[in-house]
Deep mutational scan, measured.
Amino acid sequence: EVPFKVVAQFPYKSDYEDDLNFEKDQEIIVTSVEDAEWYFGEYQDSNGDVIEGIFPKSFVAVQG
């Protein structure tokens, strides 16, 4: 069931425009499960802007 919160276990950096880049310990709200390997989610950056994109499930852990 979406949405749910995950926390980055590792930093994720990608050159693909659709990917969500983040640092370790970033909290991310997952709004869609793309497939067995990928989530789609969002978070607010330090400027208060909402950043969204896809990212690999293996880089995050589900909270709770």
Rank of each mutant, 00 (worst) to 15 (best):
E1D: 13
E1P: 10
E1C: 15
E1Y: 11
E1F: 13
V2I: 11
V2M: 08
P3L: 06
P3D: 04
P3W: 07
P3V: 05
P3R: 08
F4N: 04
F4T: 03
F4R: 04
F4K: 03
F4D: 02
F4Q: 03
K5Q: 06
K5A: 07
K5M: 12
V6E: 03
V6S: 01
V6P: 03
V6F: 01
V7E: 02
V7S: 04
V7H: 05
V7T: 09
V7D: 01
A8I: 03
A8Q: 00
A8M: 01
Q9S: 09
Q9T: 10
Q9R: 14
Q9I: 15
F10R: 13
F10L: 11
F10D: 05
F10C: 15
F10G: 06
F10S: 07
P11M: 07
Y12S: 03
Y12N: 04
Y12H: 07
Y12W: 06
K13L: 09
K13I: 11
K13H: 14
K13Q: 10
K13S: 10
K13T: 09
K13G: 05
K13D: 06
S14F: 01
S14Q: 03
S14R: 05
D15N: 13
D15W: 09
D15H: 10
D15Q: 12
D15T: 11
Y16W: 11
Y16A: 14
E17D: 11
E17H: 11
E17T: 11
E17M: 11
D18T: 14
D18E: 13
D18I: 11
D18L: 14
D18Q: 14
D18M: 14
D18N: 14
D19Q: 15
D19H: 15
D19A: 15
D19I: 08
L20D: 01
L20E: 02
L20P: 01
L20Q: 01
L20F: 09
N21S: 11
N21E: 09
N21P: 07
N21C: 12
F22M: 03
F22T: 01
F22S: 00
F22L: 01
F22D: 00
F22P: 02
E23V: 07
E23I: 06
E23T: 06
E23S: 07
K24I: 09
K24R: 09
D25Y: 11
Q26E: 04
Q26V: 04
Q26W: 04
E27C: 11
E27L: 12
I28E: 00
I28R: 01
I29V: 10
I29H: 04
I29M: 12
I29N: 07
I29F: 08
I29R: 06
V30C: 04
T31W: 09
T31P: 01
S32A: 14
S32C: 15
S32R: 15
S32L: 07
V33T: 07
V33G: 03
V33C: 08
E34C: 15
E34A: 14
E34R: 15
D35V: 06
D35N: 14
D35K: 07
A36Y: 09
A36H: 11
A36R: 09
A36T: 11
A36G: 13
E37T: 08
E37H: 12
E37I: 09
E37R: 07
W38S: 07
W38T: 11
W38C: 10
W38D: 00
Y39G: 01
Y39D: 02
Y39R: 00
Y39W: 14
F40A: 06
F40K: 12
F40M: 08
G41I: 04
G41A: 03
G41K: 01
G41M: 02
E42V: 09
E42N: 14
E42F: 15
Y43N: 00
Y43C: 05
Y43V: 03
Y43M: 06
Q44F: 09
Q44A: 11
D45S: 10
D45E: 06
D45H: 06
D45G: 08
S46G: 10
S46P: 10
S46N: 10
S46C: 12
S46F: 08
N47A: 08
N47E: 07
N47W: 07
G48D: 03
G48W: 02
G48A: 03
G48Q: 02
D49K: 14
D49M: 13
D49S: 12
V50F: 09
V50A: 05
V50W: 13
V50L: 11
I51P: 00
I51Q: 14
I51W: 13
I51N: 10
I51F: 14
E52D: 09
E52S: 15
E52R: 15
E52K: 15
G53H: 02
G53F: 02
G53C: 05
G53Y: 02
G53V: 04
G53N: 02
G53D: 01
I54C: 15
I54L: 15
I54T: 14
I54P: 05
F55W: 02
P56W: 05
P56M: 03
P56F: 04
K57G: 06
K57M: 09
K57L: 06
S58I: 10
S58N: 09
S58A: 11
S58G: 08
S58Y: 10
F59I: 13
F59L: 15
F59Y: 13
F59G: 05
V60E: 04
V60I: 04
V60N: 00
A61H: 10
A61I: 13
A61L: 11
A61W: 09
V62L: 13
V62C: 12
V62Q: 10
V62Y: 12
V62E: 10
V62I: 13
Q63C: 14
Q63E: 13
Q63D: 10
G64Q: 12
G64T: 11
G64A: 12
